[in-house]
């Protein structure tokens, strides 16, 4: 299926958000995820099913003023 992650189209074969994060080595990292415009709590990563055309934003903290 195709996902749009941080603005880029990606073809992946995963079923849950946790699966996708594992492919990116992001499990256990300090990140936050928005799925189709809605915040996904960390506790729901394993139960969030991804579907073709879904949009993800994955963010982390960086330096800023």
């Amino acid at each position: 299926m195709k996902l749009k992650v941080n603005g880029e189209e990606e073809s992946v074969e995963v079923s849950t958000l946790a699966d996708y994060l594992a492919t990116q080595e992001l499990v256990g990292k300090r990140i936050a995820v928005e799925h189709n415009g809605e915040i996904v709590p960390k506790s729901a990563f394993t139960t969030t099913q991804l579907r073709d055309g879904d949009v993800l934003e994955i963010v982390h903290a960086i330096g800023g003023g």
């Binding site: 080595e25 994955i58 963010v59 903290a61 800023g64």
Partner: peptide
């Protein structure tokens, strides 16, 4: 202490130190 929120660079430097 202020910080910014930005898109994670996917597939790059997974062990890069984090501001936090």
């Amino acid at each position: 202490v202020t910080m910014a929120v930005r898109r994670t660079n996917l597939g790059q430097h997974p062990n890069e130190p984090n501001l936090l």
